[in-house]
Amino acid sequence: MTFYHTQENRNITLDEPIKCTKNNAWLGEAYYFWENEDDAVFWGIKFKNKTGKYDIYKTEVVFDDILDTVFNREHYFFWIKQIEKAAKYFVKKTGTKPTLKEINDFFTDRGIWKEINGILFQDISENPVHFMVKEFQYKKRIQLALYNKEKIINFALSYSG
């Protein structure tokens, strides 16, 4: 399956994606990709603009053992159950709520996510181009957090903006 990776343009062409380790990375430390190119471009314009330019890389990802919470009903309900279970345990045993990133990092650290290569996840885009109908955002913004880099093939620069 084809995915897109956005980075700031630093006059270097990447051979592989950069792992996101930021605190606001929803699904923990992983290689993040966009399902739709327009989301990748919007991300570049809006958030990867420190150098004034951004790059979009296109890649194929072998979609094996990906927890697909977007299109797979069974995976989605499994995912919700595990996140809520983890959140309850954290609150009960530590007295504080974890973030989604912390839960995912915890699963990674404890070897749980060894069983999967990544998670497909969605939220709602802020891209005004997506708002083609009044009052309701109907389009999903889909991201892949890939934990296993070996599933990436043909990673290459597609576009500089």
Binding site: L67, K81, A86, Y89, F107, R110, I112, E115, I116
Partner: peptide, 20 residues
């Protein structure tokens, strides 16, 4: 193919083994 039942049990076991 991901074995969700196996993964679910593994996560249950993990939290049972974790202490405060």
């Amino acid at each position: 193919m991901i074995d969700l039942n196996k993964l679910n049990k593994k996560i249950d076991k993990l939290f049972e083994s974790e202490t405060s």
